[in-house]
Design a binder for these strands. Structure first.
Length: 574
RNA sequence: UGGGAUGUCGUCCAAUGGCAGGACACAUGUCUCUGGAUCAUGUAAUUGGGGUUCGACUCCCUGCAUCCCAGCCA
C-alpha cells in the first residue's frame, strides 16, 4: 500500500494511512487467493438518490479496485419491483461517473440473474435445503420467535423435494396469490441469529418489474440474490455496511450449500454519519415530500446531485472520503471536515471576483464626476498562470454594509468615520461623512475622499492601512441573485431525540436579490465556480442561472476570523 | 433478557507487545492588497477494575457503555 500512497502523492491526492480492508486484501493477494485478483462492486438499490454516504462506499470500492489494479462493478440491486424505479438508475450512473469513477463494461443488474437464481433455488430444494411454506406473513413472524426465545418449525418444513419443486414451479407460474406461499431456506429455527431462522428466499409479487416486465411474479430476496450475484460476477471482496454483519452467516450458508465456483468474502465497515445534516433515505425523502427543500438536488441536500448543484467538486468529495478513513466503529464526522476539503480545492482553482452581497453606496467626493478607469486585478493569487483582468472604477461604488461601522469596536479594522482603508486593487479612501435616512436613521450613503497617489493600492510614501475591502463600481455593476446556503441542521449542543425537523437551521437558505457584481461575472456559465473575495466560494446555479438573470449558490464561506472575534465578544458580554 | 459488533485527543483515523501519531476543529503567533491563503507553535486521548509481561492501546479475565438484528425491504 505504500506504493499506492506514493503514487497518489505524485498525482496530488492526499496521503492517508491504510485501513483494515486494505490490509485484508493485501493479505489475500499475498496468499494468492483468487489468483491475486481483486474485484469489488458498488451495489445500490435504484430506489433513491445517492448521497455523500454512498460516496464513501463508491470511493472505497472503486478506490480498492484502482489500488489493487482490479475492477469494480456497478450493480443495480433491483430485486424488489415495488420500491424501485428506472428514473433512479440514470441518476445513480450520473453520480458515480461525476465522482470520477468508471465501471467500464461492468454495469449489471441483479435482475439479469433471475433465471440463474431460480435454478439455484431448485438446486437448494433438491438438496433438501429449502422448502415452500404456506404460512402467512403474520404466522411466519409468530413462528420466528423473539430475540430471546427460539422459533418453532413451520409445518411445511418436512415436505418432500418433489412436492417442493412442484409447488415452487406453480409459484413461478402464477398459480398463487401474493403472500400465499414463500420459498424458505431450511436452516435452524433456534439460531440466536434471526436471519438463520429459515429465512424467506422468494416471495410472490404480482407486479411489473422495470426491466423484466411481467416475466416474473416471484422475486428473490436480498439475502439470496446478493451473495449469488456477487459469486456470478466473480466478486472477490463484497464490502457492505455494518448492519449486514448478521447476514454474513446466511451469505456464506447460501454459497456453501450451492455449487458455485466463487465464494466472495463479505467485509463490513461503518457507514458515514455527518453532523449538521441527515443521511437516512426516509428523512431525505421527507424533506423532499414536505417541500422543505426544492428537490433531491436542492443545494442544501447531502445528495450527490445536491452537492454537485451546490458547487462541490468531485475531487473535494474524494479527498474527504479518503481522509475520513474506513473502520468498524460507529462515528459521526464533523461537517467542518467537508467544508475544509471544498475550500482547499477551490482555493487552488477558483477565479477570484468582487461581488457585494448587501450593497451600501459609497461616493468619492473628490473623484471627477464623469470619470471612470480600468484597474488590474489578479484572478487567482494562488495560481499566477490564471492571469489578470480589468475592473472598472468610478466615483460611485458599492461596498459591503458590514464593511462600514459608525461606532466601531476596537478590533474593527474596516471603514469607519475618519479612517483610511484600501479599496482592493484601487485606491486608499478615507471616510468623511455619512448620509442617513431622516426617518429611519439607516445609513444610506457614505462619503469618502481618495488619494490619487495610491492607484493600484499602494502608497508611494509607504503608509499602510489596516484593511482592504472589496467594492463594485455602481454604474458598471451587474445585478445578481445570491443564494446563501448554510448547514441544513443546527449544531446539536445537547443530546436530543427530537424530531429532526425541529433542528433544521432556519437560515439554511437566505436569498439575496440585487447583489452587485463586477462585469467579469457576465461570462459565468452554469456550474462555474468563483471565489467572491472576502465572502466565500460561489457557483452559478445549473438550473436557474442565465446571463440575463444570474444566480449564484454559496458553496461555503471563507474562514472568518473576524466573525470568531465577534462571537467571542458577544459571549463575553452575555 | 438471545445473537452480532464497537470502545484511542472535541471529531475522524493510525499505532498489531517497544517513545500513543496524523488530519480537522480550537488557541497563539508570523506574514499578507482577501480578517482568505501560507508558515510556525500550542492545547488535547487509550471505557472501569484485575491479570500476564522487563514492557500492554495491543494478550487474558471481568465489569460498564454504545450500536445493529424479531420485513414476504435492501
Amino acid at each position: 500500500m505504500k506504493e499506492n500512497n506514493e503514487a497518489k502523492n505524485q498525482t496530488g491526492e492526499t496521503n492517508t494511512p491504510t485501513h483494515f480492508i486494505q490490509n485484508i486484501i493485501t493479505e489475500d493477494v499475498a496468499q494468492g487467493n483468487n489468483n491475486g485478483n481483486v474485484v469489488t462492486r458498488f451495489p445500490p438499490e435504484p430506489n433513491g438518490y445517492l448521497h455523500i454516504g454512498h460516496a464513501k462506499s463508491i470511493c472505497l470500492n472503486f478506490g480498492l479496485a484502482r489500488d489493487f489494479k482490479g475492477k469494480c462493478h456497478l450493480r443495480l440491486d433491483d430485486t424488489n419491483p415495488c420500491k424501485e424505479n428506472v428514473e433512479y438508475i440514470g441518476s445513480i450512473k450520473e453520480d458515480v461517473a461525476w465522482l470520477g469513477f468508471n465501471w467500464g463494461d461492468n454495469c449489471f443488474f441483479a435482475s439479469d440473474y433471475f433465471e440463474q437464481l431460480y435454478s439455484f433455488a431448485i438446486e437448494l430444494i433438491k438438496k433438501g435445503k429449502a422448502y415452500v411454506c404456506d404460512l402467512s406473513a403474520e404466522e411466519i413472524r409468530e413462528y420466528r420467535g423473539t430475540l430471546t426465545e427460539p422459533g418453532k418449525e413451520s409445518p411445511c418444513r418436512s415436505r418432500s423435494s418433489e412436492e417442493n419443486i412442484e409447488l415452487f414451479q406453480k409459484m413461478r407460474a402464477g398459480e398463487y396469490a401474493n403472500g400465499e406461499k414463500t420459498l424458505r431456506a431450511k436452516i435452524d429455527m433456534t439460531s440466536g441469529n434471526l436471519n438463520m431462522r429459515d429465512p424467506v428466499l422468494y416471495r410472490i409479487l404480482k407486479v411489473l418489474h422495470h426491466r423484466t416486465g411481467d416475466k416474473w411474479c416471484i422475486y428473490p430476496m436480498y439475502d439470496f440474490t446478493h451473495c449469488l450475484s456477487d459469486s456470478l460476477e466473480g466478486i472477490t471482496h463484497s464490502i457492505c455496511t455494518l448492519e449486514f454483519e448478521d447476514h454474513r452467516p446466511l451469505y456464506d450458508w447460501v454459497l456453501d450449500n450451492l455449487e458455485t465456483s466463487c465464494h466472495p468474502r463479505q467485509i463490513e465497515f461503518a457507514r458515514l454519519n455527518l453532523t449538521n445534516t441527515v443521511m437516512s433515505k426516509r428523512k431525505l425523502l421527507q424533506l423532499v415530500d414536505e417541500k422543505i427543500v426544492s428537490g433531491w438536488d436542492d443545494p442544501v441536500m447531502p445528495t450527490i446531485s445536491g452537492l454537485r448543484r451546490r458547487g462541490y467538486t468531485p475531487a473535494s468529495i474524494r479527498n474527504f472520503c479518503d481522509r475520513i478513513g474506513v473502520a468498524k466503529r460507529d462515528s459521526t464526522v464533523d461537517m467542518a471536515l467537508l467544508d475544509f476539503h471544498i475550500r482547499e480545492d477551490l482555493n487552488r482553482s477558483a477565479r477570484r471576483v468582487m461581488a457585494v452581497l448587501r450593497p451600501l453606496k459609497l461616493v468619492i467626493d473628490n473623484y471627477p464626476d464623469a470619470q471612470s478607469e480600468e484597474l488590474d486585478a489578479i484572478n487567482n493569487p494562488e495560481d499566477p498562470s490564471m492571469g489578470t483582468r480589468q475592473v472598472p472604477f468610478s466615483k460611485t461604488l458599492y461596498i459591503e454594509q458590514e464593511d462600514f461601522m459608525e461606532d466601531a469596536p476596537k478590533k474593527y479594522f474596516r471603514l469607519t468615520p475618519g479612517r483610511e482603508v484600501r479599496l482592493r486593487y484601487a485606491y486608499f479612501v478615507t471616510c468623511n461623512s455619512v448620509v442617513k435616512d431622516d426617518t429611519t436613521g439607516e445609513i444610506t450613503e457614505i462619503h469618502c475622499s481618495y488619494d490619487p497617489e495610491t492607484r493600484g493600492g499602494t502608497a508611494p510614501d509607504g503608509r499602510k492601512v489596516k484593511s482592504t475591502i472589496h467594492w463594485v463600481s455602481a454604474s458598471h455593476a451587474r445585478d445578481v441573485e445570491i443564494r446563501l446556503y448554510a448547514h441544513l441542521l443546527l449544531d446539536q449542543e445537547t443530546e436530543t431525540k427530537k424530531d429532526f425537523k425541529e433542528l433544521i437551521n432556519p437560515a439554511h437558505l437566505e436569498v439575496l436579490q440585487g447583489c452587485k457584481a463586477e462585469p467579469a461575472l457576465v461570462e459565468a456559465a452554469p456550474g462555474d465556480r468563483f471565489q467572491f473575495e472576502r465572502q466565500g466560494y460561489f457557483c452559478a446555479d445549473t438550473k436557474d442561472h442565465t446571463p440575463e438573470s444570474p444566480v449564484f449558490n454559496r458553496i461555503v464561506t471563507l474562514r472568518d476570523t473576524w466573525k470568531k472575534i465577534q462571537n467571542k465578544n458577544q459571549k463575553k458580554s452575555k
